[in-house]
Design a protein around this nucleic acid. Sequence first.
DNA 1: CACACGGGATGACAATTGTCATCCCTCTTT
DNA 2: AAAGAGGGATGACAATTGTCATCCCGTGTG
Lengths: 210, 210
Amino acid sequence: MNTPEKSAHPIRVLIAEDQTMLRGALAALLNLEADITVVAEAINGREALKLAGATAPDVVVTDIEMPERSGLELAADLKHAESAARVIILTTFARPGYLRRALDAGARGYLLKERPVSELAEAIRRVHTGLRAIDPDLAADAWEADVDPLSDRERQILRLAGEGRTSSEIASDLHLSEGTVRNYLSEAITKLGAANRIDAARIARARGWL
Amino acid sequence: MNTPEKSAHPIRVLIAEDQTMLRGALAALLNLEADITVVAEAINGREALKLAGATAPDVVVTDIEMPERSGLELAADLKHAESAARVIILTTFARPGYLRRALDAGARGYLLKERPVSELAEAIRRVHTGLRAIDPDLAADAWEADVDPLSDRERQILRLAGEGRTSSEIASDLHLSEGTVRNYLSEAITKLGAANRIDAARIARARGWL
DNA sequence: CACACGGGATGACAATTGTCATCCCTCTTT
DNA sequence: AAAGAGGGATGACAATTGTCATCCCGTGTG
């Protein structure tokens, strides 16, 4: 297997993705592109931030759902650290809530894993020149998508409820009274138009609010 | 980009995986191997079965969770069709239940997406020569893993309950009385040692029983 | 034929969950 | 100082959920 010559100043890319096989495959394929070079690979957001500091990539391609620190948090971290790296979110999920959060966190690209690798390379080039690269399917309904109506507490409690914890368990976990937990849950259920806590958790997850 | 010479009789591989980016990346990388050629790509189990008939692959690499027809069902279908293709399951999930079902369905390999692509190529070669390729982490506790204790009805009802449907909804969906639904759910909860239906659904999912 | 067995149904009871109106504190804002 | 607003707590009540003992009915099976 021979590597083609790199151009004088290839685009320096960092990949953050927790699934080894996909991460390795993407790195290998992107490295075959003449104008792209993968300078680092991270398995979660925390590691990615560290490596970004050390390798000064031009573009960071990151998954969202990773242990330790998510891709959305990574985007925010990089922005906060005033890194020059442009961020492209690469995810399975076409959740409007995710896209919105990604853009708020300063991401310049949002691409689905449903698309071929060639589009990723294309997105990297676009973003490197300062343009945006938003998946067309999502770009449309992103802004008309409704905003997460949940408060922090509601979200937090709903997350636990969705894992099967009972009201009283959640209450003692969070040092709240059981009644209060039920109140928050009830609020969340009405806000989401759900039938019960499980349904509410499902809806929130599907929209990328959890 | 130049493709290396293929050997006279390369291993013919079919890939079934619903996520386009991973599917494309794997196909591209495997094609770079001198002794492997990807003869077809499918986005679900149904399509894979059809393509397997048309292309007579030596090895089928398949994901488990796909729409239409899962990788486990595909393995069973191929066995039933007396296909000569050897099946390698490639999945994110280290669920003992999945491995067991895979082996029962006649799969010769079980590999996690947590491993590098090189291991996939290696597994393909092993399986092609008639050997097995089971992820070492799983091989150990696979057989001592407990068997799915749920009956079909219990599983079916638990699945619906896990999606947030109420007992009465499930009852009318399945033409059962509400009390009966509660009975099954209660059974499932005890069998799994869960705290409630949500917890039970979570546990069953985690073990690959749902 | 008698008997066990599995799928399904009932009825009853306790615990958990969902809903509401109200109330109590702290902060802000005016 | 008065008026809101947000986070949290209570209490009460209805609906849903979880648990059990029992029962009915068709299928095997000895």
